[in-house]
Amino acid sequence: MTMFEAILLTVITASTPLLLAAIGELVVERSGVLNLGVEGMMVMGAVMGFAGAQWTGNPYAGIVCAVLAGMFMALIFAFVTQTLVANQVASGLALTLLGLGLSGMLGEAFVGQPGIKLPALDIPGISDIPFIGPVFFGQDLLVYLSFALVVAVTWFLFVSRTGLKLRAIGDNHVSAHALGIPVVRYRYLAILFGGACSGLAGAYLSLAYTPQWVENMTAGRGWIALALVVFGSWRPWRVVVGAYLFGAVWISQLHLQALGSGIPSQFLSSLPYIATIVVLVLISSNRRLSLINTPAALGKPFVPER
């Protein structure tokens, strides 16, 4: 394997959790809901994914547990913000704090225990193609799933009728409601989908990236995912570009350091953030288009008139 391939492999590993969480949050925000609790849902996914794998000895059971944990957290958020119509920003921040605390408590017994790594799934035929095969098709289930989710979400939002309704709600929930679209039900489902994706991202951390449980192991990745959605102007493929760009610069700067480039490491460490923001702002710089993409009802509470 060449150096380039080796680097590309680590880039995929670094980008996948960001992409998984971001694609879920994108759907949530397209429905007009701002859930700042991604970090909390992700870390709960990480701990429950690890726990599930330990209990059953099967990493796939861990993934299921992680998805359920993410959805459970999302359900709390949905209930508070949609049924009780509480402030979304405050509720999302609270969800993050809750997740970080709760996961630390639940995971206490797992600290210092090596985990079970999610196996790579080779796809017969395709995995043998030089270069593309080993890099893109020697991955584990969650990486494939992240690609599949991007395609599915793009189709759902921009081709399917239900997706159109979801976007309509995100732009103007009052009009959508008047048209007879069940706003709250759509939003509940979108939030739950977001929770499931964050749970997957968490599972990727504790089962594939670093198969172990340590407290706060998300280390801010939930926040990066949130930023990717905004800077990617709510377009799935831009979010992919953002996530992979972030991962690529993240890994390259480590390689630059190991080569002894002499560039201050603090600057290199901040480079992924700078590069991603600059590039995404540039590709989203058409003001008219970005206004069309922004869900107009984002973060606004909706109380159906009875």
Partner: peptide
């Protein structure tokens, strides 16, 4: 060869540094 991760705690980044 030294890599500074500029953080005390980020398991993912530590793993990435090790791989690099």
């Amino acid at each position: 060869k030294v890599i500074w991760v500029n953080s005390w705690f980020d398991p993912g980044k530590e793993a990435d540094a090790a791989k690099a």
